[in-house]
Design a protein around this nucleic acid. Structure first.
Lengths: 109, 109
DNA sequence: TCGGTATATGCCTTGACACGTATATAATCT
DNA sequence: AGATTATATACGTGTCAAGGCATATACCGA
């Protein structure tokens, strides 16, 4: 990933799973390894990517390292989603919407 | 992509750009090619992926093919995002933000 | 039917990522 | 200091996706 954006970071299912688990509170690596059934090195690598994206922070606790969720970067995705949200909320797909717009234009003439 | 989910489909920046353009209304392939500066075959392949994910539909119009946005699958991302939305919203008040910042200093990556 | 336009697909190369194994680093305890 | 636990990184590998180029397909006008 040359330009790592929040989108492709959470595009990885395992990383989404990690975030979901961290929503319940900080967890050490070993616990994540056990819960997601990924290898320890693999988990550490995913955590590295999440940390680089600002989605988690790490806090040393004795020999272990507690990972903590930092959800702010997800706001970027939320922002991108915003204009689409209205579209499916109206239960209209863009084609119908467009046709409606055309009708509206004709009526204005 | 073995298990193509909506997440990795919109993880691609060019595809997000295509969706953004289709929000304004249906467009033929050639126009998308011109607007996003991607090759014609490349654009067609991205459209193929979007179509397989149910994010666009196609409507033949003479020799051209009009692509239309179908935003419903994006609701999956929106749903995943929902529990996080409260989290970053709660961190908007000044006190918690300040405490977060202190934590961030201690955690230091 | 022929030529031109619009779009899709096949083939190939390249690069990036996820994963596993092994090893390094760090902290703790005796 | 040595042993043990917890986590990170290095290295090699297989896989898969994206891009470019060439070509196939489909539709249209003359």
């Amino acid at each position: 990933m040359l330009v790592t954006s929040t989108f492709d970071v959470v595009g990885e299912p395992t990383r989404r799973r990690i975030l979901d688990l961290l929503r319940e509170g900080p967890r050490p690596v070993g616990e994540l390894v056990r819960l997601i059934g990924c290898s320890q090195p693999g988990t550490s690598r995913h955590l590295r990517v999440l940390r680089d994206a600002g989605l988690v922070a790490v806090r040393p606790e004795a020999q272990r390292r507690l990972y903590v969720l930092r959800p702010q970067p997800l706001a970027e995705i939320d922002a991108w989603l915003t204009p689409y949200r209205e579209l499916w909320a109206n239960r209209l797909d863009a084609l119908e919407q467009h046709l409606d717009d055309l009708d509206a234009q004709k009526m204005e003439d």
